[in-house]
Computed example of a mutant assay.
Amino acid sequence: PLAVAKLMKAVVDKEQPGLVIVGKQAIDDDSNQTGQMLAALLGWSQGTFANKLNLADGSAEVKREVDGGLENIKIKLPAVITTDLRLNEPRYASLPNIMKAKKKPIETLAPDKLGVDVAPRLKTLKVEEPPKRKSGIKVKTVAELVDKLKNEAGVI
Results as ranks from 00 to 15, higher is better:
residue 59 S to E: 14
residue 73 I to H: 11
residue 154 G to E: 01
residue 39 A to I: 13
residue 138 K to T: 01
residue 124 T to W: 00
residue 22 V to M: 10
residue 96 P to W: 06
residue 135 S to Q: 12
residue 103 K to H: 07
residue 45 S to A: 06
residue 34 T to K: 00
residue 43 G to E: 08
residue 25 Q to E: 15
residue 20 V to H: 13
residue 87 L to R: 02
residue 78 P to Y: 13
residue 67 D to K: 09
residue 120 P to L: 09
residue 1 P to A: 14
residue 96 P to S: 06
residue 99 M to I: 13
residue 96 P to K: 11
residue 98 I to K: 11
residue 147 D to I: 03
residue 42 L to G: 03
residue 70 L to G: 01
residue 126 K to R: 13
residue 102 K to V: 06
residue 61 E to A: 05
residue 43 G to H: 08
residue 127 V to G: 14
residue 59 S to T: 04
residue 153 A to R: 01
residue 52 K to F: 10
residue 35 G to H: 00
residue 147 D to R: 12
residue 57 D to L: 13
residue 149 L to M: 09
residue 23 G to D: 06
residue 126 K to S: 15
residue 72 N to V: 12
residue 118 V to L: 08
residue 107 E to W: 05
residue 25 Q to L: 06
residue 149 L to S: 11
residue 53 L to S: 12
residue 89 E to Q: 15
residue 119 A to P: 02
residue 44 W to C: 07
residue 116 V to M: 11
residue 58 G to I: 08
residue 13 D to T: 07
residue 80 V to I: 05
residue 82 T to I: 08
residue 83 T to N: 15
residue 141 T to R: 10
residue 9 K to G: 00
residue 32 N to C: 11
residue 42 L to P: 07
residue 95 L to S: 11
residue 77 L to C: 10
residue 153 A to I: 01
residue 53 L to F: 08
residue 40 A to G: 11
residue 126 K to N: 14
residue 24 K to F: 01
residue 28 D to T: 12
residue 17 P to Y: 12
residue 126 K to W: 08
residue 129 E to W: 13
residue 70 L to I: 13
residue 46 Q to H: 06
residue 141 T to Q: 02
residue 75 I to R: 02
residue 137 I to R: 00
residue 96 P to L: 14
residue 3 A to M: 08
residue 92 Y to V: 09
residue 125 L to E: 10
residue 138 K to D: 02
residue 41 L to A: 15
residue 32 N to K: 03
residue 24 K to L: 00
residue 32 N to M: 06
residue 45 S to M: 01
residue 63 K to Y: 15
residue 110 A to L: 06
residue 45 S to R: 09
residue 123 K to S: 04
residue 149 L to W: 01
residue 136 G to L: 07
residue 97 N to Y: 11
residue 23 G to I: 01
residue 129 E to R: 10
residue 1 P to H: 02
residue 103 K to M: 12
residue 137 I to G: 00
residue 35 G to V: 00
residue 125 L to W: 09
residue 116 V to W: 03
residue 91 R to S: 05
residue 80 V to N: 03
residue 23 G to E: 15
residue 134 K to R: 11
residue 76 K to F: 01
residue 51 N to D: 08
residue 36 Q to L: 09
residue 143 A to L: 12
residue 107 E to T: 03
residue 65 E to K: 07
residue 128 E to P: 14
residue 15 E to D: 14
residue 122 L to M: 13
residue 16 Q to L: 14
residue 68 G to R: 08
residue 29 D to M: 02
residue 43 G to Q: 05
residue 65 E to A: 04
residue 131 P to T: 07
residue 154 G to H: 01
residue 85 L to H: 12
residue 51 N to Y: 02
residue 134 K to F: 13
residue 52 K to W: 05
residue 150 K to V: 00
residue 104 K to V: 05
residue 124 T to K: 10
residue 123 K to F: 04
residue 73 I to D: 12
residue 36 Q to G: 09
